[in-house]
Amino acid sequence: MFDTVVFDTLSLAFEEADLLPETGAILCLRAEAVPFLMQLPKDRLTCQNSFKPDHDALKAAGFAVLPPEAESFPPAALTIIMPPRQRDETRALFARAMRDAPVGGVVVASLPNTLGAKTGEKILAELAGETQSLSKHKCRAFWAVKTEDWNAQLADEWIAFDTPQQVDGGALWSQPGLFSWDRVDAGSELLADSVPEWIRGRGADFGAGQGFLSREVLANCPHVESMTLFEAEYRALACQKKNLEGFTNWTSHWADVTKDAPKAEFDFAVMNPPFHTGRADSTSLGQDFIRAVAGALKTGGTLWLVGNRHLPYESVLSECFKSHEMLEDEGGYKIIKAEKPKRKR
């Protein structure tokens, strides 16, 4: 979620540089359902976001939204980009935007200075050549016009890198932009080592990412009947298929678990909950995950959780479970076991 000053700066650039075309399609990549979008002509606007909460919010607001798997975009006179956090994903998104824009089309983005505004403009300049920019509110809006001599070869290289690939010496299939994309996350690895081999029944993995935790459970816990993976970032699902290749007792769902989690369905759950939304830290998101997983567990169910040591999860664990205990405190992470979710009467 971007701060409102990012959109204020973008709006100012629209006014001063006359970026909004009178006719033609408008495309917004990694769009968020924010008031800024309401200022654009809705009948000409198409949005894209593969993150389920944002995708659903855009649809609920009545915007035309591309399917989450879309990596080719309709040609647009104006393409607006809300750059993601990770550099390689950002490069590929800018490359796809430039590739699919018509000659003469404008590509524009905005970022806070503290979150890589100059780097973002440099990425666009490497593709487009000349860029223009406007700075305000400690943010920068920057844009370029696609010309015949744009750097299509570099775009192809950046797009080719933005695919599922083996990382960490082959230990994991992952993709730029996913959490801990280029290595096995140390917290998840610690949790995988802490889950006992004797667990049994139907399990769930909330915020499953590339599927590492589910793979380790299925590989090392012979009494587990099945694993159900829930992940909000659609791009992770292709990596799950590769990481869980060879296992048949698992299913995956593109889901916002804070809204769409099932009720009283699982015997146990494993979880390394997220603690940021887009570019912004959000401690409450992990707490919402705990509430969601408590509702999804059966009465006698157990949660195995890893979190950064400083994250305040204990109070919500007490709110949602009859008991919980810290099993390990190592390397800046804590492993917590919580049992028997409370039911509201």
Rank of each mutant, 00 (worst) to 15 (best):
G331F: 03
P21H: 09
P312F: 14
A17I: 04
L124E: 04
E121Y: 02
A33C: 14
T79A: 13
T9Y: 03
L27Y: 01
I123Q: 00
L115G: 07
K136W: 09
E121M: 12
T90E: 08
G301V: 07
F7C: 01
A97G: 12
E71Y: 09
V103Q: 13
F230N: 00
W198N: 14
V184Q: 05
G246D: 12
A128Q: 04
P262C: 08
S282M: 10
A109S: 15
K52T: 03
P102T: 09
Y234H: 15
D18G: 14
A128D: 06
W254N: 05
K59H: 09
E157Q: 15
S188E: 03
G24I: 03
T131C: 14
D193T: 10
A31F: 04
N272I: 05
L297M: 07
H253T: 07
K59R: 15
R235I: 02
M38P: 01
E197L: 10
K322N: 14
A97I: 01
L172G: 05
E216M: 12
L305D: 00
S194I: 06
P68H: 11
V6H: 03
I336R: 01
P102I: 04
P341A: 08
F161G: 08
T251Y: 01
A238L: 06
L78E: 04
H137F: 11
N220P: 02
S135H: 06
A70Q: 08
T119I: 10
L20Q: 10
C28S: 14
E121S: 10
P41W: 04
K59Y: 03
A76L: 07
D162N: 13
E15A: 14
V184C: 07
L285I: 14
S174A: 10
L190I: 05
V316L: 06
S226F: 01
V106W: 00
G278M: 02
V217T: 06
L20N: 07
V316W: 01
I290D: 00
E328N: 06
G295H: 05
D193H: 12
W198M: 11
L178S: 07
A92S: 15
L237G: 01
G301D: 06
D329N: 15
D193M: 10
R291D: 00
E22N: 14
T147V: 13
T163L: 06
P21S: 12
M1F: 09
R291F: 01
I159H: 05
G187E: 02
P274S: 12
G203Q: 04
L66W: 00
D100C: 14
R44N: 12
S323K: 11
P74Y: 00
A280V: 08
P41S: 11
A296D: 04
